[in-house]
Design a protein around this nucleic acid. Structure first.
Length: 426
RNA sequence: GGAAAGAUGGCCGAGAGGUCGAAGACACUUGAUUCGAAAUCAAGCAAGGGGCAACCCUUCGGGGGUUCGAAUCCCCCUCUUUCCGCCA
């Protein structure tokens, strides 16, 4: 969440930011509730002060009459306090809930726009692959090579679930290990994280687990959810912690399953592995000093580029528009790899995403550090995809297809797979 | 799953209805000493909120209760440790 002390001092800025993000937040109601809460809090504090004062007086030896009088005074205060405290609790909860809905400030450099079409392409790498033959998409290739099975996935688990088979299993593991090696080389500590997290962590990271439009699976009868990304578990790792300045930056990379409800996400552009309910992903996460977060954001992006360049995949980088940012993000860069089977003759499709969430998540999760001036401040938190296996598989399979229907293994992966081609069995 | 013990500031740890926002050690900051450092000595040092300030309020795992007054007593929950059972 943002710093609610800034609600009034940066009111215009916050209002503009909400507008730029095309979000619906009733800022005036929140400010009104804040005032009401403050007034009530003052009353409560005055009563508490009186209560404490009366209790203090009871410490000394008193004659019985005075003693009884103080006890009665204390009882009266207690009654008045209980009533006001109950009202405060209601307004306080309401205010906090509302304040959580205010998005993070967006970077002044982020392009302003409503949706992903307004994202700004800032870099192109490689030439979109063109084939001398009619390119197939990964769904067709996967079926013909007997390496992906969507029908059995639907039969056993439901739509948007899938089986990975045969050499594609090894290919996915190779991608995992390949990306892990690169990320570790840059000083990230590797983790395998839980695939389940508590709702309070989801909320702190900025995900809303409840509600019809939520992308999160909640686990019935518990206060936990299936994670949609290891960002949640890596970001929750240091909840309620004061970190040492010398420990920063903390760089973590976590492999997890990712579960997403993807309600309504269907159609040509979502087919096959592109949009699924479950996939594996290696995520990068950094906790750092506020003044260093923009630098580390660029570092994460450059590692993502290193991974996709190493795979020999053409891609572009987009600077995400305000309306498409996501509430916790200050700025977000996506890598979109060329996918020859996407659309009629190939299109770019998102394969990574890296966000600088500044102190937005840290404030909700209470993750701080002690600065040189002795003050305790919020850290900045960043996340970025090292490799989302399902989408990386789409890009690899479609770009490395051959005319005979086989798929070559990117040279950088061969040492991890132990084979250099996936062919039809005879 | 059963039983027992426990959860206190950055860390360790005392505290058993009012003298406790909390002893003490460590860490840290400042000063003294030193050519400098180590060691030693002295002082400071929880967080959050409100107030120009004096100062006030909240917080001892979380929630509820008893009481004029709760870190301390009662109830519920969570987590940790140990033992037993079960198991990859």
């Amino acid at each position: 969440m943002i710093d609610v002390k800034e609600l009034k001092t940066r009111y215009d800025e916050i209002a503009k930011n909400i507008k730029d993000r095309y979000m619906n937040v009733d800022l005036d109601k929140i400010v009104k509730d804040q005032d009401e809460r403050a007034a009530l809090l003052l009353e409560v504090e005055n009563l508490r002060s009186k209560r404490n004062e009366t209790a203090q007086k009871m410490k000394q030896k008193l004659d019985n009459e005075t003693r009884q009088r103080y006890i009665q005074e204390g009882k009266d205060i207690k009654e008045a306090l209980a009533e006001k405290e109950a009202r405060l609790a209601v307004i306080d909860e309401e205010f906090k809930k509302e304040a959580m809905t205010i998005p993070n400030y967006a970077s002044p450099e982020a392009p302003i726009g409503k949706e992903d079409k307004d994202n700004l392409a800032i870099k192109f790498y490689g030439e979109p692959k063109r084939f001398s033959f009619k390119a197939k998409d990964h769904v067709q290739l996967g079926e013909e090579l007997d390496i992906l099975d969507f029908d059995k996935g639907a039969k056993v688990s439901g739509q948007k679930f899938y089986y990975i088979k045969n050499k594609a299993v090894i290919l996915q593991m190779a991608l995992e290990r390949y990306a892990m090696d690169i990320v570790m080389k840059h000083g990230f500590t590797p983790f395998i994280t839980p695939d389940v997290a508590k709702e309070e962590i989801l909320n702190g990271i900025g995900f809303n687990p409840r509600g019809a439009e939520s992308n999160i699976y909640t686990i019935e009868g518990t206060d936990t959810c299936l994670v949609g990304t290891a960002e949640i578990t890596l970001g929750g790792y240091y909840k309620d912690t004061i970190l040492s300045k010398e420990d920063l930056p903390i760089k973590m990379t976590g492999l997890s399953h990712c579960f997403r409800r993807e309600a309504g996400g269907a159609g040509q552009y979502s087919k096959g592995l592109y949009r699924v309910h479950q996939f594996s992903k290696l995520e990068m996460f950094i906790y750092c000093l506020p003044e260093e977060s923009e630098m580390y954001h660029k570092e994460i992006l450059s590692i993502e580029e290193e991974i996709f360049q190493g795979l020999g995949l053409p891609y572009r980088i987009v600077d995400t528009a305000t309306g498409d940012l996501g509430a916790p993000a200050y700025r977000k860069f996506d890598i979109e790899a060329w996918m020859p089977g996407r659309g009629d003759e190939g299109e770019y499709g998102e394969v990574t995403s890296t966000s600088n969430c500044t102190d937005y998540q840290a404030r909700s999760l209470n993750i701080r550090f002690r600065d040189d001036d002795g003050k305790i401040k919020f850290v900045h938190m960043l996340n970025g995809t090292a490799v989302a296996l399902s989408r990386a598989m789409v890009a690899v399979i479609e770009n490395y297809q051959n005319e005979d229907g086989s798929v070559s293994i990117p040279p950088a992966l061969v040492k991890y797979t132990g084979f250099d081609k996936i062919e039809k069995k005879n």
